[in-house]
């Protein structure tokens, strides 16, 4: 399996996700610089978290128009799994690969802490190693993670089983208190129509090893390896 991690000026979770991928794949992914206009053959592309281009204009807006993202968008349309974490999610939304928008957190604060997530579907290469209804503890670290879309888009995401993860409490219930950033319908992660693109605000790579205090995120990477081998 070959994986690529896209690196922008200001990415800061690229190495963390590379470590998590290496743990699951058995070898390191390629780090691909944002100016690259040709992307080799990959089974998985990860757009990592961070502050690409200093969040200038809007989070992810400048990165979305970088040369490498045109390549990534093409691969996504051809069915290659593309995982966007945090700023990566913001970038995928700005490229139009995923619907909606990520607005300033309702509290206006940057939030960096563990949250609980409910797995809403296991029908995707990213969530196949989880069961629907599983409650995961995964950290978030963002200022602009407040998912917004119009009601028609939200209804469509739900009816097509494209909401992958929601913020929940310990019992797996969706409550306003368990929603850290004001996201519409407690949405933490969504899939594209082809189910090969996932964007999520939480950072599974940050809790993918017991040494880090938890490994609920690991199954996402293990599951991707399994899905790519199948």
């Amino acid at each position: 399996m070959k994986a690529a991690v896209i690196v922008f000026p200001g990415s800061n979770c690229d190495r963390d996700v590379a470590v998590a991928l290496e743990q699951s794949m058995g070898h390191a992914p390629d780090m691909v610089w944002h100016r690259d206009t040709h992307l080799g053959a990959y089974d998985l592309i990860v757009v990592p978290g961070g502050f690409s281009y200093g969040d200038y204009l809007r989070s992810g807006a400048i990165a979305a128009h970088s040369p490498v993202m045109r390549e990534v968008a093409g691969r996504a349309k051809d069915g290659t799994p593309v995982l966007g974490i945090c700023n990566g999610f913001q970038i995928l939304i700005e490229t139009g690969l995923l619907p909606g928008a990520l607005m300033r957190n309702a509290s206006l604060k940057f939030i960096c802490r563990d949250v609980l997530l409910r797995v809403e579907t296991s029908t995707s290469p990213f969530t196949g190693a989880y069961d629907k209804g599983d409650v995961l503890r995964i950290p978030i670290a963002h200022h602009d993670g407040n998912y917004f879309a119009d009601d028609a888009t939200l209804d469509r995401l739900e009816s097509e089983d494209r909401v992958a993860l929601r913020y929940c409490d310990q019992q797996g219930k969706l409550t306003p208190e368990a929603n850290p950033n004001g996201s519409a319908r407690s949405i933490a992660g969504i899939l594209n129509e082809g189910r090969n693109v996932l964007g999520l605000m939480p950072h599974p790579e940050r809790l993918a090893d017991a040494l880090l205090g938890g490994n609920d995120g690991r199954a996402m990477f293990d599951g991707l390896v399994e899905a790519c081998a199948a």
């Binding site: 204009l57 807006a61 128009h65 619907p99 928008a101 607005m103």
Partner: peptide, 8 residues
């Protein structure tokens, strides 16, 4: 194309 996010 770039300056505004017309979704919001």
């Amino acid at each position: 194309k770039l300056l505004a996010n017309t979704v919001i």
